[in-house]
């Protein structure tokens, strides 16, 4: 059962990731990325990471991708581009690099002994949110605060970047 669900989700994830790269219309690309994100959220559930699955949907599907769609609509980019402007001159380089990368990764994964038994952590499965919350506010307190500062800096940076220069009103 779990294996079947895994393969279905994996197929959805890979297929829509490929479509994300191939679609010429940015809106279609964005929607296929949403499909990938949902499949990954499903895989998080399979891996017992319930909290991350929910956060994945809230942050990525609910906010980030809506922001992408918003910008595409705002800049009126939602029309298909001509083929030559879609794929750059580096197509061959890209494909070669991609194959090399994939082979390297697969060998790296294949040569390790990862088929062994999975370590059991009962608390992580049954009390997922509590476990993560405790870790975040104890061992990872400093990174947590830094992350909040990063978000604040990003917030201010975005306002500065997008604000139009207004004539001085003196």
């Amino acid at each position: 059962m779990e294996t079947a669900v895994f393969y279905v989700l994996a197929t959805i994830a890979v297929a829509s990731a490929v479509l994300l790269v191939l679609f010429r219309n940015p809106v279609y690309s964005a929607l296929s990325l949403v499909a990938t994100l949902f499949a990954v959220a499903g895989l998080f559930v399979l891996l017992n990471a319930y909290f991350l699955a929910a956060v994945q949907i809230i942050v990525y599907a609910g906010a980030v991708m809506v922001l992408f769609l918003f910008v595409i609509m705002l800049l009126n980019l939602g029309h298909s581009e001509a083929l030559e402007s879609t794929v750059g001159r580096y197509r061959l380089t890209g494909v070669i690099f991609l194959c090399a990368l994939l082979v390297a990764q697969l060998t790296a994964v294949g040569t390790r002994q990862l088929r062994g038994p999975v370590a059991e952590n009962e608390a992580l499965r049954t009390e997922n949110v509590q476990t993560l919350g405790k870790l975040l506010y104890t061992d990872f307190l400093f990174p947590f605060e830094v992350a909040s500062i990063i978000l604040l800096v990003a917030l201010i940076g975005v306002v500065v970047l997008v604000k139009r220069e207004t004539p001085e009103t003196t």
Partner: peptide, 23 residues
Amino acid sequence: SHYLILSAILFSIGVAGVLTRRN
């Protein structure tokens, strides 16, 4: 290992997209 292979495939597709797309 299944998850890692899937992760590797997704990552490579992302790299391919960054290298080939111009939008």
